[in-house]
Structures are given as C-alpha cells and as structure tokens.
Design a protein around this nucleic acid. Structure first.
Length: 435
DNA sequence: TGCTCCCGCCATCTC
DNA sequence: GAGATGGCGGGAGCA
C-alpha cells in the first residue's frame, strides 16, 4: 500500500492541517517546527526518503538507493518524531504532516503514535489529529497504568490474556461511546480501553465482537500491557518471548506467538527510543531482554537522533541505543554478575506483592538474596547467621506461598513460580558456598 | 542460521 | 463509498 499511503497522505492536505504543521512542502518556507534543514543528517541519510525528511521535500523516487534498515527503524523514527514535536509551540500534530516531514509512510506513523499515546506522550483528538502532551504526560500515564494493574492484581484478573479476553469477556461500551466523540475525553480513551474489559457483560452486542477483538490486539493496548508487566511485576528484565507468553496466555499457536513477538519488537524499539526501557540480556540464558528504566526522555537533548554509523561495526543498534550491555561474548561471567539482578527482580516481586497487600511495614522482613550481595556475604562466617539464613529460606518459602498471587493467567503464575524457584536455588547455592 | 523488525497488503472502522 | 486506521505475516537485513 505504499502508493496508496502516499497518495492518501498527499491528498489529505488541509483537512489534516494543524498548529504544528508546516506549509505545503512545495512552497517550502522554513518549517515552523523542528527546522529539519538545519539538522545534520549523516551522509548516508542525505538521500532517498530519509533525505526527504531532512530537506522537507518529497523525494520519494530514491527510496531504494542504498537501503539500510537501520535508517528506517521504528526507534529511530520515534526519536525523530519526538525531536520534531517535543517543543513548547507544538500543540497538535497531523499524521500526514508527520509522515511527510519524516519521510515515511503513514502506516509507520500510526505505529509510533499508538505507542506514544499509550504512555501518555500524546493523545488522539480527532481523525488524523493528535495533541502533543510531551514527556510530562508520562508519569501520570504510568501512575494510572500501575494503579489499574494493581487493581487487576488485587482483583481476580491479571492482565487478562488478550486473546482470551477478546473472546470471553468482551465489553468496551465506554470505549465505543468515546469513539463516537473523539474530541471529548480523548485523553483517557486509550488508557481506559486497555484492560478494564474484564467485567462480563453478556448483553454486549455480538456485532462488537470483531471490533473488540481487533481493538484488544492493538499496538497501543499491547504497549500498555507490556509496560504493566514492568510496573507491577518489577522484574528486572523480561524477554519478549516471555512477555508474549504472559500477554497471550497459554495454549496459543506458535504463529500467534511469533506475531505477538514481532509487535513487541516494534513496541520495545519505540520504548527504547523514549528511554523507558533498554535492551539487555537475561541473566541466566543471555537471551535478549528488556529492562525497565522508566525515565522517559528524549534520547538526545538537542536536535535529531540520527542513525550514526556504529562505533564498532559488530554492534547492532537500529538507530536507537537498544543495549547498554558492554559485556563481550565469552567474557561475561553471568553466574555471579547477573544473579543478584535476577534475584532482585524476584525479590521485587515479593516486595511488590507485600506492598500491594498493604503489609510493607514488617519489621522482621528479611530480604533474602535480593538484599545487596555485599551485605549478605559479610555475615556468612557466623554459624548462627547460617542457621538464620536457613530459617530465612523457610520464611521466604512461606512468604512466597502466602503471597503467591492466584493468577488466572497460567503463564504469569509460572513466571512467578520460576522466579521463586530461581531465588531459592540461588540462595541455597550461596549458603552452600559460604558454609 | 536465527533473531530482528521493516514493509505493505488488506480487513475493518469512521466519516 | 472513500478515506483512515491498524492487524498481520512475509521476508530481508543483520550479527
């Protein structure tokens, strides 16, 4: 649909005009926002579609020259999108304008705005029009996401597996009402539509089924669910495979899972470019995973984030700094280096549940292996301490059992169990080593 | 070779 | 009915 997209973008014209949009590219007075021409694009970007973005003119003919994926990554596009619109004088954003100025298809802009809207950076106002809220909107969105997620945790449902909920518990009445008036209450539209659909409304018209099904697979909703994993589980890292399993639930076809993982890659790249997450490796498997940072901000404070040639060609960056790991293969000792992190993730789960259950003030609370490792090691010479540690294990086992949430989502249940088991085995190893 | 993820088809929704 | 939206998966870039 390249041509279709391009033509629709071009045809949309005035209907999509907004405060942030520059005049038609042909006339090309200096753009009101984000003076792209002043930005230094690397030589490899100064042609084709990317060059169009920087020059402000069409330039579609040369798209396939010197093609490089890195220059077209969603993360890079997001960085550029943010650089373009994260300014005080920007209020509304037109999708056509964004597509034109960034030199990409509308389709890609949809991907970006859906994710950005999910984390509160912008909000849909009307067809083809979004309002820029900026990074100031992120904390509120995160707070709401977390609150809702905790409500769901303390209730019965934990991130209802999207596919299941779409066929079993469909109800999006309020959402549909909002869709009827996009200008009104659009702020909370996406946030509200996310996973509050666990209430059974058997009288919901069956004609909504497909629409709801579609909605519940949306990139925006998937983004929110992905973020909620970090906000509530407080695991240190989550691989996309795990996330897909958690969000889908058990018993889904491999192709289904692959599709979900693809989408999660898209989301992760965008969130990475916002510095909400960063790419890393899982402690035990060294599988690529993502770590929650939660510090939403532009990757670079000034100007465009551009796909710089990697300092080391071996590193794959896709335009955004996806990884902060500096451990070369074969040199990294994951056994001791990563364990505390993994364990801390598990510890956080328990702490998290404790807080969620309003029991965060236990004075006798013992933080097991997630306690800073240095502090733990100093104690291990003392026999009584060892005994205390053994008792601690039992305490933790009890704690884990008593706080273990009753997930409806079996995958989530399994993950929790996985962390508890990992913690126990790590702790046993540690006490064995030190005794 | 497997991971990553861009691309664009096309179903669905909205106006 | 036309245009807008966005799910989806093929398949190519990359390490």
């Amino acid at each position: 649909m390249d041509a279709a997209s391009a033509s629709s973008s071009a045809a949309a014209g005035p209907s999509s005009s907004s405060g942030a949009e520059p005049p038609a590219a042909a006339a090309a007075p200096p753009p009101k926002v984000a003076p792209l021409v002043q930005l230094q694009a690397p030589p490899q970007l100064q042609r084709g579609a990317a060059a169009a973005a920087f020059s402000g003119s069409g330039g579609v003919g040369c798209r396939h020259h010197a093609y490089s994926r890195k220059q077209k990554s969603l993360g890079l596009l997001c960085s550029n999108f943010v650089a373009l619109y994260d300014r005080e004088d920007v209020e509304t954003i037109g999708l056509d304008d964004a597509a034109k100025r960034l030199g990409v298809e509308r389709r890609r802009i949809y991907d970006i705005v859906n994710v950005l809207e999910s984390v509160g950076i912008l909000v849909r106002r009307a067809k083809n029009r979004y309002t820029w809220l900026g990074f100031e909107g992120v904390p509120a969105a995160m707070k709401e996401l977390k609150e809702r997620a905790l409500r769901e945790l303390s209730g019965s449902a934990v991130f209802p597996p999207m596919e299941e909920s779409s066929t079993a518990n469909l109800s999006d009445d309020e959402d549909d009402e909002k869709l009827g008036d996009a200008d009104e209450d659009a702020d909370s539209e996406k946030l509200s539509q996310s996973m509050d659909n666990t209430s059974d409304k058997p009288d919901a018209p069956s004609c909504r089924l497909r629409s709801d099904h579609r909605k519940e697979k949306s990139l925006g909703l998937l983004t929110q669910n992905f973020v909620k994993l970090f906000l509530t589980m407080e695991v240190e890292t989550v691989s996309l495979d795990e996330a897909a399993r958690l969000l889908l639930g058990e018993g889904h076809a491999e192709s289904n899972m692959r599709t979900k993982v693809r989408r999660l890659y898209d989301i992760a790249n965008v969130l990475s470019s916002l510095n909400l997450i960063e790419k890393t490796q899982q402690a035990d498997t060294r599988k690529p995973a993502f770590r929650w940072l939660g510090q939403a901000k532009r990757k670079q404070e000034d100007g465009f984030t551009v796909a710089q040639p990697p300092a080391r060609p071996s590193k794959r960056t896709f335009g955004t700094d996806l990884t902060n790991i500096d451990n070369k293969r074969g040199r990294f000792d994951s056994t001791m280096e990563n364990k505390p992190k993994l364990m801390q993730g598990a510890g956080n789960i328990v702490k998290s549940f404790e807080r969620q259950l309003g029991q965060g003030n236990r004075n006798d609370f013992v933080y097991g292996p997630f306690h800073p490792a240095v502090a733990k090691k100093q104690e291990t010479d003392d026999h009584s301490v060892k005994q205390q540690e053994r008792k601690t294990i039992q305490d933790w086992e009890n704690l884990a059992v008593s706080f273990r949430p009753q997930y409806q989502n079996q995958a989530l249940n399994d993950l929790f169990g996985h962390y508890v088991e990992a913690w126990k085995s790590w702790y046993l190893d540690l006490t064995r080593e030190t005794s």
